[in-house]
Design a protein around this nucleic acid. Sequence first.
DNA 1: ATGAAAGCGCTAACAC
DNA 2: GTGTTAGCGCTTTCAT
Lengths: 334, 334
Amino acid sequence: MAKVTIRDVADRAGVSTATVSRALSGAKRVSAAVEDQVRRAVQELGYSGNGIASALRRSRTDTVGMIVPSIVNPFFTSLVESVEHALQDEGRQLFLCSSRSDPQLEEQRLRSLVARQVDGIVISPVHGTGSTAAISWAAGELPLVQVDRYVTGVDSDWVGVDDDEALRLVVGHLSGRGVRTAAFISSRLTSSSTELRVAGFQSHTARLGIAVAPGALLLGEYSIDWGRTAMQRLLAAGPLPDAVVCADDLIALGVLQACSTAGVAVPEDVLVTGFDDIPFAALSDPPLTTVRQPQAAIATEAVRLLSQAFREPPHEPARLALAPSLVVRASTGG
Amino acid sequence: MAKVTIRDVADRAGVSTATVSRALSGAKRVSAAVEDQVRRAVQELGYSGNGIASALRRSRTDTVGMIVPSIVNPFFTSLVESVEHALQDEGRQLFLCSSRSDPQLEEQRLRSLVARQVDGIVISPVHGTGSTAAISWAAGELPLVQVDRYVTGVDSDWVGVDDDEALRLVVGHLSGRGVRTAAFISSRLTSSSTELRVAGFQSHTARLGIAVAPGALLLGEYSIDWGRTAMQRLLAAGPLPDAVVCADDLIALGVLQACSTAGVAVPEDVLVTGFDDIPFAALSDPPLTTVRQPQAAIATEAVRLLSQAFREPPHEPARLALAPSLVVRASTGG
DNA sequence: ATGAAAGCGCTAACAC
DNA sequence: GTGTTAGCGCTTTCAT
């Protein structure tokens, strides 16, 4: 277990360390005989290379850092998986961090990733304004692309979903189902997507003449628990709206559970919609009508933008709002 | 954006690089005046340190690698989150990788983590035998602890759940509900936990006189899709067993969905159980009876064992099988 | 308390 | 095609 270095391999193979390095990197041409000796020496000694030394010398780590607000939210894990996949095609590794929806932790993660010399960062910011300083700084240090959510005033690429279009789809669908009053349950944290979804909900309900009672805008967090709690409040508050629109599927699942517990029938007594189309949205009782995010495309684009930044000089920040689609299930009448 | 190094800070502060290093590391004593100058210089230059260089010199990265078979399985993400939490208390970062249930990818990840000089590795092996070689090798290079699943014949710690006890609980519960015939849906991959769960299912059903028809042992993978498919096969095959026991919650959720689609009532026509108690197990239709894993404890113990390995000389490998508990919900009659 | 100097293990010029 | 050499940026003796 004593560390075996490139020096040991070189000695054993009777060549210089430079030759070993060349033989192993594959790129440079080395005579077949020497290459063989080197391979043998590597084998015999159990050499496995020191990526840290290599990274220091080359000043690149072939690693990309990713920071998401939650690692237990299936939407983000799907996104992470897609990003990892896309990265693999270019021989880079993903270094995943969770900010646990905490701007301070997020800043810590950013500093840590920069210190570790990752080649670039993919981040879904926690907070619309609280994340700005740290992200601005990081974006000045290395290529950075925001996904899903973004903070404004930062000179960086962003790729996500068209939230306004998403709420147009949802509210339009509900209107078609005869909905006249609606409530919206979302997160308190002012992230860009949260704000855009709230704004979209308000403008499209207004446009279609759907009434939103005061107190029918409930802000908490993106979690099953909050969905349950918020729905209990709505139930306690008095006459139910025709529909409850949720800013993500976790909230919506909590809402469904609260309804079930309270003996309120969905969709008979109230319609419910989610956002993201996580795998479990199809399995709830009843299955959830929701907005499907093009997460694979978001991931692919994010990685593409990053790779571009690795190669080319800084460009105009790109902002890609990809089109969502509506998945209609039983929670709005099927 | 030009890299500012410790040299620049030293020049600016009018001291040596050694002093800057000492001032920044905090540990060594440096006069207050100098410490102040250094801080100012750091501030003014926007110095942020090079963790790679530091790691090379200190030959430690304060980073732990973790490899799980799937990053979209909520059981593993919970585990990951707990591990990350536990690690944070000792100032270490988590470097997360997914092996996507592929032994080859797993080996690649292991090599990559070792090359990156992580201080230790937490891994849930993909395969009972196919993972052995790579894990043995890695365990020879650095401290390594297996979680949830394990490969035998590797000299490393393991911490997970007592699978036999878990199946004793499940089968005992079903027996109490009057079940006389049962089927088991699991993963094809021969991981330790898979094997122990199958074995436990067989021994406890035998002990309690519950019949298991030939063909009532369905092996696929840990996914919703496989659960759905397997259940469709059971439905097509003829008379249903009294109960369907699943090796994890994803499979069970797929089973519930297939039942719902086919108009088979749970628990009236058939009882269904899962394993893990992921958050969505409580939200399905009907809510799922399942085995709760002590995942927070598993994570804490894993990190404790790792830290111990960092400090102390090699010990007898520990094997900690923690006690599971049964969560009874409506899918077995509530 | 501070500085000088020696590397950590590797790769990239530059010679030959 | 291969060796020699000079660091990458940092930490850590060893002096002073």
